[in-house]
């Protein structure tokens, strides 16, 4: 009997990598040797100031660095490490844990297509394939199948550069890609922010919650 090879994951990037013995060990980057763009430094320092423990700023700092560099490149990580006085490894461990951090270069236009349960019950996998096809190998695009994005009410849906759109038809795939290329607002009529709550009783003309005598 032939045993098919499933995506049993023996080829996860990194698993087969040895270290490069010609490199120095990676300790906390020396500020004298690590140039950090001023705006990024300022964003990171502002984030650090928001928390009782500066390390809490790791994720916000990485968001900022990814925004600037397009991905969490070694250079980006070193810059964050330098400002936060952490080892680059510390931040690499964080990067690897979270789905939104990219550890390889990716296109600027991010399309997360939810393929989790509620969306897949409504055709998400086909949608994902369609968006992928529409984007083709355009290096400006980063089309990913994503876990539940918290918008099953508009299933199947996608997050396009952070904006949620749905419910999507297969034909929307092309439009998303075209509109992104053209720099247009994506599927304005399908944007989640413009949608009303499903509950029919959540009407807007109901009386105020508080009676007047309740007011101070």
């Amino acid at each position: 009997m032939s045993v098919a090879r499933y995506d049993h994951g023996s080829r996860i990037p990194g698993w087969d990598d040895a270290v490069d013995l010609s490199k120095d060990p990676a300790s906390i980057p020396d500020p004298a040797l690590t140039p950090v763009p001023a705006e990024l430094r300022q964003q990171i320092e502002a984030a650090m100031a928001r928390y009782p423990d500066f390390r809490s700023a790791a994720i916000p700092a990485l968001h900022a660095a990814q925004e600037l560099h397009g991905w969490c490149s070694p250079e980006a990580i070193e810059q964050v490490a330098c400002v936060m006085r952490l080892t680059p490894a510390y931040l690499t461990a964080v990067v690897g844990f979270y789905d939104m951090f990219e550890s390889k270069p990716v296109g600027r236009n991010t399309v997360y297509v939810c393929t989790n349960i509620s969306c897949s019950l409504r055709g998400a996998r086909e949608l994902h394939a369609a968006v992928q096809q529409a984007a083709g190998d355009d290096p400006d695009f980063n089309v990913r199948a994503f876990e539940c994005l918290g918008a099953c009410d508009i299933a199947p849906m996608a997050s396009v550069n952070g904006a949620y759109v749905g419910p999507l038809e297969l034909s929307d795939a092309e439009r998303i890609v075209e509109q992104l290329r053209a720099g247009e607002d994506v599927l304005p009529e399908k944007q989640l922010l413009r949608r009303k709550v499903a509950d029919p009783r959540a009407s807007t003309d109901a009386p105020a919650l508080f009676d007047d005598e309740d007011r101070a």
Binding site: I12, W15, V19, P25, A26, P74, T87
Partner: peptide, 26 residues
């Protein structure tokens, strides 16, 4: 506290390694 050795990735894909394939020398 050299904090050079870390776990990469998550879950069943986790593996022990270092930053950007720098050797663990400490």
């Amino acid at each position: 506290e050299d904090y050079q050795l870390i776990l990469h990735e998550r879950g069943a894909q986790s593996y022990v390694g270092t930053f950007d394939s720098h050797p663990y020398v400490a």
